[in-house]
Simulated scan of single mutants.
Amino acid sequence: MELAAEIAAYRDGRGDPGRLVGEFRRALLLAPLADGPDGGLVSAVSGGIRWLYAFTDEEALARFAEARGESGREWPYLAILGARLVDAVVPQVDGPAGVAVNVADEDESMLFPPVAGIVPDARAVDIVDIVDGVAPDSRGAVA
C-alpha cells in the first residue's frame, strides 16, 4: 500500500501503526527546498518542534503551495526516502524535529513526531537518558 493510502486507512481507524511507519520509511517523499540565503528544507516550528514538510507526490505539493497562496512560483524539491529524512536529516536539525506529510490534505496528512521508533533514539523526545543522575538538555548534552 502506498503511504497516502496507509495514512488514510490509519486515520479511518483501519491502519496499523507499525505498518504506517514502515510505509513512511520506504516512501519516496518530496521535500520542498527553502528560498533565501539559508536554504535547507521548508519547515515550520509548532509546539517547540521543527516540522519538515514532505509530500507523497507533486500534486500534494501543489495543494500545499496553493494553500499558502504561492502556487504561481516554482517549488524546487528534494526527492528523499522517508527513512533518510528521519535518519540523516532530522539529526542535523537544532532541537526536536519531525516530519509533516501532505499537510494541505485533509485525509492524507500525518505528523511523524520526534519519538522513538520514528526518529533515531538520540533525537527522540520521549527517551530520557540519565548519566550520573542528570538528564540531557534538548541538544543531548548533559547539563
Rank of each mutant, 00 (worst) to 15 (best):
T56W: 10
A88E: 15
A116C: 06
D87H: 08
A67K: 12
W51E: 07
S109D: 02
V101K: 05
E66H: 05
I80C: 12
R50K: 15
A83G: 14
N102I: 01
V103D: 06
G72S: 08
V115E: 04
A62R: 11
W51K: 10
V101M: 04
R50W: 11
R84L: 05
G117W: 14
S46M: 05
L81P: 10
V86L: 05
S71M: 08
D87C: 08
G48F: 12
V42M: 11
G69A: 04
W51V: 01
V90R: 08
T56Y: 12
M110H: 15
D105Y: 03
V42Q: 06
F112R: 07
D87S: 13
A116G: 00
E106T: 13
R63C: 06
A54G: 03
V103A: 05
V90W: 02
E58R: 13
P91Q: 13
A88R: 13
D87E: 15
V101H: 07
L85C: 10
G98L: 01
W75N: 03
V42H: 03
A83S: 14
E74V: 06
T56P: 09
E108I: 01
E59F: 03
V89I: 14
D105H: 09
L111E: 07
A67S: 15
R68H: 09
Y77C: 08
G69T: 04
A116K: 12
N102E: 01
G95I: 13
S43L: 03
Y77Q: 01
P91A: 15
A116L: 11
D94Y: 00
G98W: 01
A60N: 04
E70N: 08
D94A: 15
V45I: 13
D107C: 00
V115C: 01
A65R: 02
V101Y: 08
V90D: 09
Y77W: 10
I80Q: 10
A44N: 06
L85Q: 09
E74Y: 03
W75K: 01
L52N: 07
S43W: 04
W75L: 04
A83M: 03
A97Y: 08
G72L: 05
V42N: 00
A83Y: 12
P113I: 09
V115N: 02
A44T: 13
I49T: 15
D107Q: 15
R84C: 00
V45C: 11
R84N: 13
